[in-house]
Structure formats: C-alpha cells, structure tokens
Deep mutational scan, measured.
Amino acid sequence: TFYNFIMGFQNDNTPFGILAEHVSEDKAFPRLEERHQVIRAYVMSNYTDHQLIETTNRAISLYMANL
C-alpha cells in the first residue's frame, strides 16, 4: 500500500520523511487504501500545508512508477 511505501521514509530528513511522520500520526489516514485517487483526495481534503500536499503528489507518482 501507499502507507507502507511512505513509512519506509520514516526518520529520513527529507520531504518524504516529513510526510511519513505526518501520515504515521494521522489516525484517520487510509492505511489500507491502494487507489492513489482516494489517497490524493484524502490529503487534499485533510491537509492544509501546501508543501505536504506537493510532497504527497510526488510520493504517489514515485509509488505508482514502482508498482
């Protein structure tokens, strides 16, 4: 899942690491979701930090390219 992918960046001092920290603390994050459209919609609806949203979009693109 995307959640498992992004958790691989925990403790990294990178934008993906920052995203992983936010996702791990977000109890409502769709952890079992595999459809990138649902993940993107969730982030757009629940996150207000523009940098975090952009990082999510980049992470989703990388995740999709590696499926």
Rank of each mutant, 00 (worst) to 15 (best):
H50E: 12
R58G: 06
L52A: 03
E21I: 14
H36W: 14
E25H: 15
S61N: 11
D26T: 05
F5C: 02
M44R: 07
I6A: 01
F29I: 04
D26E: 02
N13C: 09
Y47T: 05
I60C: 06
D26L: 06
I18L: 13
N4C: 11
R31M: 07
G8I: 07
R35P: 04
K27N: 10
E21C: 10
L19R: 01
Q51T: 12
I53Y: 06
D49W: 05
D49V: 05
G8V: 07
Y3C: 02
M64L: 15
P30D: 04
I39F: 04
E25Q: 15
Q37W: 15
D12C: 12
S61I: 14
R35F: 05
R31H: 08
I53P: 00
N57M: 14
N46K: 08
E34V: 15
Y42T: 02
T1Q: 03
A41F: 08
M7E: 02
E54Q: 08
Y42F: 04
F16A: 02
P15W: 09
A59S: 03
E54I: 09
Y47H: 02
I60T: 03
Q37L: 09
Q37M: 08
A20F: 07
T14C: 06
N46V: 07
A20M: 04
F2I: 05
H22E: 04
P30S: 04
E34R: 15
N13L: 09
V43H: 02
F9L: 04
R40L: 15
E34D: 13
L19N: 02
A20Y: 05
Q10S: 10
T14Q: 03
M7R: 05
A20Q: 04
Q37G: 09
D26C: 03
M44P: 00
N46Y: 08
V38K: 07
I6H: 01
L62A: 11
I60K: 00
S24W: 09
M64H: 10
A41L: 11
L62D: 06
Q51F: 15
N66V: 13
H22C: 08
T56Y: 13
V43P: 01
Y63W: 15
R35S: 14
L32N: 13
F2V: 03
V38G: 05
T1C: 06
P15V: 11
L52W: 04
I39Q: 00
P30V: 05
T48R: 11
G8R: 12
